[in-house]
């Protein structure tokens, strides 16, 4: 279980990006984090795996405190937190397999990883994950030979290779077309269900979020302004999160005019 208490983040001389965030995410829950650009979504998930250092407050994963850990301890804990990125963040000139296996780096010595001598178990698992995301035939291709959707699948397999207890997902579909976006979200959702894995998905596409997540958290100016089920998300809530805007789809407005 992930527990965040009184989390604050302020960049040097800047305003508060996160202002007293309190959050609990139980096993297996998929959380969609929505909010306007600059609301602090990215900062929040990067505080959890300590790519960003929080200013104050505590973050704990399964009872281990992450906010005040030493650099070595942080590296150990990062192994249990898989992260999936917007622009896939693969190492393009490495093979698909090497990208997936790089999820194991935290468990290996430098020399083992330098010589690419992975334990057979890691390799077997990596093939399983590639099978799971549907890329088993592409294992030896270079990552830059793949399409956007395929690259994101490699990103998912890399996160799985970490054998994580939590998934952090940063705008997984922002660079993908609507169909691929749905496939990727469905894949993430079903993997989380299979493994009982909690996930925080940072996402701009509200309808997509409503379709695939259990719980939605709305972030605005560093504060949580909404926390509830996807079905509770209505126009008032969207206005509270994003500000005034006409939230009706175009065709519905057309219908109203005709009446």
């Amino acid at each position: 279980m992930l527990k965040i208490e009184h989390l604050k983040k302020q960049y040097k001389k800047g305003p508060l990006v996160l202002n007293d965030i309190n959050l609990e995410i139980p096993e297996g829950q998929i959380v969609g984090l929505i909010g306007p650009s600059g609301a602090g979504k990215s900062t929040l998930i990067r505080c959890i795996n300590r790519l960003i250092k929080p200013s104050s407050g505590s973050i704990s994963l399964d009872g281990t405190n992450l906010s005040e850990a030493s650099p070595k301890k942080i590296r150990q804990q990062r192994r249990y937190i898989g992260m999936i990125f917007q622009e896939y963040a693969l190492v393009e000139r490495l093979s698909v397999m090497e990208n997936v296996l790089s999820g194991r780096l935290g468990y290996l010595s430098f020399w083992q990883s330098f010589t690419r001598r992975y334990p057979q178990k890691d390799i077997d698992n990596a093939f399983d994950y590639l099978q799971r995301v549907g890329l088993i035939d592409h294992a030896n291709k270079r990552a830059d030979e793949l399409s956007g959707g395929q690259r994101q699948r490699v990103g998912i397999a890399r996160a799985l290779a970490q054998d994580p207890r939590l998934l952090l997902v940063d705008e997984p579909t922002a660079s993908l077309d609507p169909k691929t976006s749905r496939q990727i979200m469905r894949l993430i959702q079903s993997i989380c269900r299979e493994k009982g894995l909690p996930a925080i998905i940072n996402i701009h596409d509200v309808p997509l979020a409503m379709q695939f997540v259990d719980r939605i958290i709305g972030l605005q100016g560093g504060d949580i302004v909404f926390d509830g089920q996807a079905s509770e998300l209505n126009e008032q809530v969207l206005t509270r999160i994003y500000g005034d805007e006409d939230w009706q789809p175009a065709d519905e407005q057309q219908d109203k005019g005709d009446d």
């Binding site: 795996n49 790519l51 590296r75 150990q76 804990q77 990062r78 192994r79 937190i81 992260m83 990125f85 917007q86 622009e87 963040a89 693969l90 190492v91 393009e92 490495l94 090497e98 790089s102 999820g103 194991r104 780096l105 935290g106 468990y107 290996l108 430098f110 990883s113 330098f114 990103g155 890399r158 970490q162 952090l168």
Partner: peptide, 22 residues
């Protein structure tokens, strides 16, 4: 590309592993 480096760091890799892989 800094995000590839971020991605490798987020797997718990050490400084030299990040240099080697990312």
């Amino acid at each position: 590309n800094a995000t590839s480096v971020e991605a490798i760091e987020s797997t718990g890799a050490s400084r030299f592993q990040v240099i080697n892989y990312a």
